[in-house]
Nucleic acid binder design. Structure first.
Lengths: 248, 248
DNA sequence: TAGTGGTCTAGACCACTAT
DNA sequence: TAGTGGTCTAGACCACTAG
């Protein structure tokens, strides 16, 4: 201990900056308020714009900020809690789910990861149903539901598939099957171009990818890949007993 | 259609780069293989290093790559599926869970979000138990478990709290209570310095934050905040029926 | 058209790991 | 000590939004 020198912790500037900004957001800003632009902020803190942006990116990742090109940076509202797992297994499109059918097509191009779950071979035909989930005007999630054509009792004509009506048609066929169970995985991903558009984000935006496997008759009958905006969503996996106890 | 000009889509360079690299990873590299260093890669693709890094960051976020300072960039193995929700609610520390107790302390500083769930007031004493989850030598997750001192039947002396033994002591007290239910939320976060260290990542690394609320006697008795490495983990929420069917 | 965030460059230096 | 990824700079231009 021959020196009084404080332990030199070369904490990165952007990290320190993030902390400072985070505290400022708590104390001096309210939800929806617009921050100064990036050039001004960088100048105010005496750092390059790229460094400032690194801090802003982290805060956006944590759901504290919202940035929109051409508009500015605003203080984000708290994340929305989104119920992901219903109390009891149900098919997608069952009464009471929050999804809006968008369209449906028949195809044979299936992501490798999905094909593995469905145990389909290359070239097998599947219905692809696209849906979206919206609350209070804000798009929360986009979903692709894959159902092997062979898994449904009736074959749907290509003519009826277009648009939301087509999506309803496929979902309707599903309800006639008995659902034995389902399981889910959650992982981090980045939005593909198509999803990004639907989510009102730029391609590559961080998303929480929920993969749901529906089991019927001893085999996987459908797979849903739902991508939730990671900046605005908090996924909830409820236990109805616990919820009931606290609510009562 | 008066022009043969292809639609000019100014796809960002880093996005295109990411696609190219991603395909190369699929076809030309195997797990664990070392990529050329960033300066060489950037030169090879004719872009600035910062641009190349933007593409690598995305791929790392998606779990395709693993980068380590001073070492290099390697092709990551597929994400590990981590069971997050046991078939039936159990207290943390119950027989068979994968967590290793690290230590425990008594404190009155609780994150605001946790205090809200526990319905504790400022100054209320809580036990803070830290645990970690490891598979095959790789740290997967770090956890902070908060239990109000008032919620446990017996008061633990400060002396017994240090180290893993202290953690076991608190967890042991919990088992004596009846667990009515639990629920969980999953959201994206960035690793705090302490967690980052435990996870062998840099501060700010993306993590999946699982918040579990344990309900006993009609109130929230404990809250666990578990942070999983987002790059290496895929959280699974199993349905034992479905799993049993597929396994059989 | 003015102002915003998004992309990109060509450097520099630092922190860390392995030899 | 050499080589890696991590941080940082000071610019430039582009894509988008709104008045």
């Amino acid at each position: 201990m021959g020196t009084t020198q404080l332990e030199t912790v070369p904490e990165p500037k952007y990290w320190h900056l993030k902390t400072v900004l985070s505290e400022a957001l708590d104390s001096e800003f309210s939800v929806g308020e617009i921050l100064p632009n990036e050039r001004d902020l960088a100048a105010r803190f005496g750092v390059a714009r790229a460094t400032l942006r690194q801090a802003l990116e982290q805060l956006e990742l944590e759901g504290r900020l919202q940035r929109r090109r051409g508009v500015g940076t605003t203080v984000a509202p708290p994340r929305v809690g989104v119920a992901v797992a219903p109390a009891r297994p149900t098919w997608p499109g069952a009464a009471g789910d929050d999804w809006q059918p968008v369209d449906a097509v028949e195809t044979d191009t299936v992501p490798a990861a999905v094909a593995r779950l469905l145990e389909t071979a290359a070239g097998d035909r599947v219905y692809l149903v696209r849906r979206s989930r919206v609350t209070q005007g804000q798009p929360l999630a986009a979903e692709s539901l894959y159902v092997p054509v062979a898994a449904l009792p009736g074959r749907l004509e290509a003519g009826v598939l277009n648009g939301p009506a087509g999506a309803y048609a496929v979902l309707g066929e599903l309800q006639s099957l008995e659902l034995d169970g389902q399981d889910r995985t959650v992982e981090l991903g980045s939005a593909r171009a198509e999803d990004a558009k639907q989510l009102d984000r730029l391609p590559g935006a961080p998303v929480l990818v929920v993969t749901t496997r529906y089991v019927s008759g001893g085999r996987t009958t459908a797979v849903a890949v739902s991508t939730y905006r990671a900046d605005t969503c908090r996924l909830t996996f409820g236990d109805s007993d616990a919820v009931a106890l606290l609510a009562g």
